[in-house]
Amino acid sequence: MGDSVTIDLEEGSSESIDNSHLCLVGKVLASKILNRSAISKIIQSAWKTREEIAVLPWPDNVFLFRFSNLEDRLKVLREAPWSIMGNLLVLQPLKMGCSVSEMDFSFCSFWVQVHGLPMDRLTRRNSQIIAESLGQLIGVEAPHDGLLLHRSFLRIRVKLDISKPIHRGFMMKRKDPNTLNITEKWVDFKYEKLSDFCYDCCRIRHDNKSCKFTRREAGRNSGYGPHLRTGVAPKLNLPVDFIQKQIDEMEARI
């Protein structure tokens, strides 16, 4: 019959202390196995936490990050995504009762800038509509309802399915301001802190050399490229903690 024995194990005991609220689990989407020493040095330099972080290697470029305080953990989540040697680091909370092989690293939150919208379309509601077409809405950079004219673009926090191609933008229908005819206008997406990705198929998990989704000839005309990247937008003088509180509450549930 083989080793088909069922064993009922304890979920916890006096020997174990649940420190999961101080931990994050991260997977580096790299083609080669990275060592803990290199990861630890990069992390300590990039995250700039108040206290030291323990970095524990697990299989297949998965690492456990154990923090000393909640503030450091929240800061790291808030400022995600992060890259390691150009490769995306996908973070998620440590979930008790879940094995490493059961963890899903297919989703990651990004700040997405929406460029090219007419001024009358720079609204909170349009931010929500656009975000929902991309993935799960996490937060909208907006101090109040009405026109969001504090920037020339919308800025939205979206949880993306990174197993799929990221979007370059979309066609928006509008009345031509000169002729009043219905026309279409292209609107660009730009992703803050976007790591290396494939210019052929626009997936984050690999580069052009190892693309299995698009023929090389088609990839050359894909329209994808470094223009999808952009720097982090400067902070605005908005009501204290309004945006950050929104993000913290939403991402704590991811």
Rank of each mutant, 00 (worst) to 15 (best):
A30Y: 00
L160D: 10
L88H: 03
G26W: 02
P81T: 14
H167A: 14
M96P: 01
D200C: 08
T183M: 06
L89D: 03
V90L: 08
F197W: 03
D3L: 15
R155F: 06
S31I: 00
I7G: 06
R203K: 14
T230D: 13
H144Y: 14
I138P: 03
R203Y: 01
I17T: 11
L29C: 00
L160K: 13
M171K: 07
V100I: 08
R174L: 15
S40D: 10
L24D: 06
S195V: 13
R66A: 15
V76C: 05
K212G: 00
Y191S: 00
H227Y: 15
I138A: 12
P81W: 02
N61T: 10
K32R: 08
K175A: 08
S20G: 00
L154T: 07
D60T: 15
T49S: 01
T123Q: 05
P165D: 00
W186I: 10
L228G: 13
H115F: 03
K159T: 06
C98F: 14
E10Q: 06
R205F: 04
P239S: 05
H206G: 12
C201Y: 04
L134A: 05
S109E: 15
S127W: 01
E251L: 15
G97K: 07
D248Q: 04
D8H: 08
F107Y: 04
Y191Q: 01
G219A: 04
W186H: 08
I7Q: 06
L29A: 05
S152D: 05
N181H: 12
D120T: 07
L34C: 14
P234K: 07
E249Q: 12
R50E: 10
R125V: 04
E79R: 11
R124F: 10
K235A: 14
M1H: 05
R229V: 04
Y224K: 02
A38Y: 08
S127N: 14
S101D: 07
P81R: 05
K185I: 11
R50M: 13
R220Y: 03
E52R: 09
S152Q: 06
K164F: 00
D200Y: 13
R229Q: 09
L134G: 06
T230S: 14
D188H: 15
T123V: 12
C198P: 01
I182K: 08
V140F: 04
V28R: 02
D72W: 06
P57E: 12
E184F: 10
N87P: 05
A131L: 07
W82H: 13
C23N: 11
Q128E: 15
R174D: 00
K75Q: 15
P93R: 09
E251C: 04
V100E: 07
S14I: 15
W47Q: 09
Q128M: 15
F170W: 08
P143I: 03
R155E: 01
L147W: 01
